[in-house]
């Protein structure tokens, strides 16, 4: 699993997570998201277009970050979910918790609109 971070316009940060979001790999993503939130970066877009798998541990990590961001008037948006990931989010109703966008561009537009 690889995690990449990138600053976008307007103090929005992009986090790309590749590979499997499972119990052994998710801590990398958790560390990256927590570091950004610790630094006061509270609007995060997590690009999952290269993520092939997610389990409950991966969901837990994303919900934790989402909750922290919301407490600081921010948000964690998701984009690029493949059909398998989308199924997992829908199965537990977390598609209603997160803003999920088909592409990074759509997620960026949503952030701009929300400001």
């Amino acid at each position: 699993m690889a995690i990449q971070q990138e600053s976008l316009h307007g103090d929005v940060w992009l986090v790309r997570a590749d590979g499997r979001l499972d119990q052994s790999q998710t801590p990398l993503l958790e560390t990256a998201l927590n570091q950004l939130l610790d630094d006061g970066r509270t609007v995060l877009i997590v690009d999952l277009s290269q993520a092939s798998y997610i389990n409950s541990g991966g969901l837990r990590c994303l919900v934790s970050a989402w909750r922290r961001a919301k407490q600081q008037d921010g948000d964690v948006l998701l984009c690029g979910l493949n059909d398998r990931l989308q199924e997992v989010f829908t199965m537990v109703g977390f598609d209603k918790v997160f803003q999920i966008h088909p592409t990074l561009i759509a997620a960026q537009r949503a952030v701009k609109k929300g400001k």
């Binding site: 389990n55 409950s56 837990r60 919301k70 537990v92 918790v97």
Partner: peptide, 22 residues
């Protein structure tokens, strides 16, 4: 429950519980 997670009244993710649900 997703609604409780969204409005902050759920103990998730501290307690967990998704694995069995899955």
């Amino acid at each position: 429950i997703p609604e409780d997670v969204a409005n902050g009244t759920s103990d998730f993710p501290r307690v967990g519980g998704l694995g069995v649900h899955f």
